[in-house]
Simulated assay, not measured.
Amino acid sequence: MIKRNEIRQRIHSRIRAKLAGTGERPRLNVYRSLNHIYAQVIDDQKGVTIVSASTLATKSKTGGNVAAAKEIGKAIAEKAQEKGVKKVVFDRGGFLYHGRIKALAEAAREAGLEF
Rank of each mutant, 00 (worst) to 15 (best):
Q81C: 00
L113Q: 05
G84A: 09
I101H: 09
I76V: 04
V85G: 08
T22V: 02
L113K: 07
I76A: 05
R32Q: 14
M1N: 11
R10N: 12
N35Q: 12
G93S: 10
K83Y: 02
E82Y: 01
A103M: 01
F95L: 15
V89A: 09
K74F: 04
D91L: 07
A111M: 04
R4P: 02
Q81P: 00
A20H: 13
Q40C: 03
V66Y: 13
T49P: 00
E71I: 11
I15T: 11
G23N: 05
G99Y: 13
I11D: 11
I37K: 00
L96E: 15
V66C: 06
A75E: 12
I101L: 12
G94R: 14
N35E: 15
N29G: 14
K102A: 07
V30H: 06
T22M: 06
G99H: 14
I42P: 05
E78P: 00
A67M: 09
G47F: 07
L104D: 03
E110D: 14
I37Y: 02
T49G: 01
I76N: 05
A67W: 02
R14L: 06
I76H: 02
M1R: 10
K79R: 07
H36F: 10
A75Q: 10
I15L: 13
V51W: 03
K87M: 09
H12N: 12
N35R: 13
A103C: 01
I37V: 12
A17M: 10
G93C: 05
I2M: 13
V88Q: 11
Y97T: 14
A103Q: 01
T62F: 10
L28Y: 11
T22D: 09
G99F: 14
V41D: 09
N29Q: 15
A53P: 00
G64H: 09
I72S: 04
A53R: 06
K3P: 00
Q81D: 06
A68Q: 11
A39I: 00
E24R: 11
A105R: 02
N5S: 14
Y31L: 13
H98A: 08
E82P: 00
F90H: 09
V51M: 03
Q45M: 03
K86Y: 10
A17I: 03
H98L: 12
G99C: 08
F95Q: 15
K59E: 13
A39L: 05
K59Y: 08
L96M: 15
K79D: 01
K3H: 12
Y38H: 12
R16L: 08
A69W: 03
R92N: 08
G23L: 07
I37A: 01
A68H: 08
S54D: 01
F95A: 15
E106P: 06
Q81W: 03
F115I: 01
I2E: 15
I7F: 11
V89E: 04
L104S: 00
R14K: 13
I76L: 02
P26Q: 12
A57D: 11
G47W: 07
S54Y: 06
K86I: 06
K18S: 10
R10Y: 13
I76Q: 02
Q9C: 08
R109D: 02
P26I: 00
A39K: 00
N5W: 11
E24F: 04
L28M: 14
L28E: 08
A67G: 06
G112R: 06
R27S: 06
G112Q: 10
L104R: 02
L96T: 14
G47A: 07
R16M: 04
E110F: 03
A69F: 05
R14H: 06
D44I: 02
T49Q: 04
S13C: 01
